[in-house]
Write a protein that binds this DNA or RNA. Structure first.
Lengths: 123, 123
DNA sequence: CCACTGGTTCGACATGTGTCAACATAGACA
DNA sequence: TGTCTATGTTGACACATGTCGAACCAGTGG
């Protein structure tokens, strides 16, 4: 399965963000924009997923093996389930190297979410 | 209204006011931090809530009457339910003025979420 | 006082979600 | 080949959540 096709909001390559949506406060979001953006927020709306994501994002080299981050208080299948969700939301990518599977954050998506939350200087 | 830059995480109904968490990528979040931050993301993890929040945030004066934003394709009780959720997450505040109830965004919380998503320049 | 309008709360239902144990799969190595 | 370890998938379950209609509450104006 491909990581990119689930969330075609932005260029997977560079930092150039093809925004999924304008900033929240710029104008009312359309139903489609909201649907798209809500998927990302929902992915981070679970404590376990947030910890997993933070663990990957803060790990040296920007990537982490599952074995490095699976100490979040839930069973291993549950960890795998949450990592899959984060992948489907386009927040993480995974790659198998030998025995282990490494996860890595998708920085452009994070940037898109940050832009989404930005408040306009003058309202 | 407080203008503090401390990004308090408000919990509705007079509960604890907790400072928000460090950036996701700075270090692995603790369970408590994740619990706290996930509540905010979850609040924005629904398309209807996202549209309502965007409608309030983008409305002139930074506030909006329910009657101005209730055109999101769900019934009025559902709108009210979602606005309550956003309030409980500390993202909105409400005030009754005469016949109408006005909702307004909590800018410090929005800023906290933006900081949370910030990626450190060097990793 | 009563009726009307805007908004919330209640009760109920269907669907979604987080979780685990059990099983399956992929690679390493003997 | 076979076995061991590291992850992912499946099936089942309890619980949370989104939704609505009906009832209810708050102001306004007769």
């Amino acid at each position: 399965m491909s990581n990119a096709e689930v969330l075609p909001l932005l260029e997977a390559d560079g930092q150039v963000v093809v925004p999924c949506c304008p900033p929240l406060a710029e104008r009312p979001m359309t139903a489609e924009e909201a649907e798209t953006a809500a998927r990302m927020f929902k992915a981070l709306g679970d404590p376990v997923r947030l910890r997993l994501f933070s663990a990957v994002a803060s790990h040296e080299g920007g990537e982490a093996c599952v074995c490095d981050i699976s100490d979040v208080g839930v069973s291993q299948p549950t960890v795998s389930h949450h990592l899959k969700k984060l992948k489907e939301a386009g927040l993480l990518t995974s790659e198998r190297r030998g025995t282990w599977v490494y996860y890595r954050v998708e920085p452009s998506v994070l940037a898109a979410m940050g832009k989404l939350l930005a408040l306009p200087a003058a309202a």
